[in-house]
Write a protein that binds this DNA or RNA. Structure first.
Lengths: 190, 190
DNA sequence: CTAATTTGCCTAAAGGTTTTAGGCAAATGC
DNA sequence: GCATTTGCCTAAAACCTTTAGGCAAATTAG
């Protein structure tokens, strides 16, 4: 019988596509095996476990996101950079909901430390350098931006803002306006 | 043989406890049956499916959250209300991570419309009445607050902020300061 | 206080996913 | 061409979900 040409790389890539099609939670070793027309057990030579597969998909998504964010940031600063960066998250989540869900997977600390997550944090900090924040406020702001981006995209994806006026795009624009204004005028402790 | 005294109510309540102990994703009909020392099939008289069980746990969590938020809001206004409301989310998520994860479950539109989710939205709007926002800015602000609360709590829960200075409590306080300042000074469209 | 009915939990069974173990054949290297 | 490595296979055990049908306990009615 001819071989299917499996590899960890191909499996993870196909898993990411599967996630976008059927949802990250429905990505299973079985479903992936069906997609390659191969016995389930065969995948276990390339992937340690179901959890391992999911983690690898998450890492792939984080890399893709970081790459796009880096592209978007090139040559931009200030509000321009802020908006471009934020749009990368939102656009990616809308175009690749399964991958985005994967990127939100809880990773154990060591895996997270070795992931593209650190690039995300560095880029957020780079954006904030366009505003006049000093430590520890810059860190507070990093956390706030991460929260808003992830939170907004998550709520939007779960349908929280659909079918009600004004449309989500308008709120997104105004929320970014507001964040820019806030960063330009970060309050001192009360 | 004596009966175990199952009921939908008791199952959902036990399911919520189980979620806090082992994580919402690990809540299964089987695990719940073990907890009651009862055959798995017996649960299906009280709960339609695994999905149904999870949805009911989510609805319970949303109710509990809304109840606490309503208590916290009583007699407060302005920043006081904002902080109390936000703390309810964060404290609940830290005390009941499984239930909180359940509350973030994607519900189908009709279920969501009948859930306590609408109370949450109403309370957020009530808080914003302490600031001088008019439509559609109030709606934008509702969405932004929801995003920050959910986003922050989610990131904190997944360990995003741990083991790095400054500690998460400080960032939380300063983020709420910042939100208050922003709402008092909401920017007009550029 | 029985008798009828309802209700609650049980056994049985089928179908799906995960994971390990061991085997044969195809690809690779000498 | 032969040996070794690698890739995918069959087999099988363990666990979760869900449906069907049955018996006994609890509830209601006469």
């Amino acid at each position: 019988m001819a071989r299917a040409g499996l590899s960890t790389e191909r499996l993870v890539r196909a898993g990411a596509e599967l996630a976008d099609e059927v949802g990250f939670d429905s990505v299973t070793v079985s479903a992936l095996a069906r997609r390659f027309d191969v016995q389930v057990a065969s995948l276990y030579s390339h992937v340690k476990s179901s959890q391992d597969l999911k983690t690898r998909i998450a890492l792939l998504a984080l890399e893709e996101l970081a790459d796009r964010a880096a592209d978007a940031l090139a040559g931009r600063a200030g509000k321009d950079a802020l908006v471009a960066f934020a749009d990368v998250y939102r656009d990616y989540a809308r175009a690749h909901p399964g991958r985005y869900a994967a990127a939100r997977l809880r990773l154990d600390p060591e895996t997270a430390a070795a992931s593209a997550g650190v690039r995300h944090a560095r880029m957020t900090r780079a954006i904030l350098r366009g505003y006049d924040l000093t430590e520890p406020d810059e860190t507070h702001a990093v956390r706030m931006l991460g929260s808003v981006f992830h939170g907004y995209v998550d709520l939007e994806l779960s349908g929280g803002f659909s079918h009600s006026a004004p449309d989500s795009q308008q709120s997104w624009t105004r929320v970014l306006d507001a964040l820019d204004a806030l960063l330009r005028n970060w309050p001192t402790p009360t």
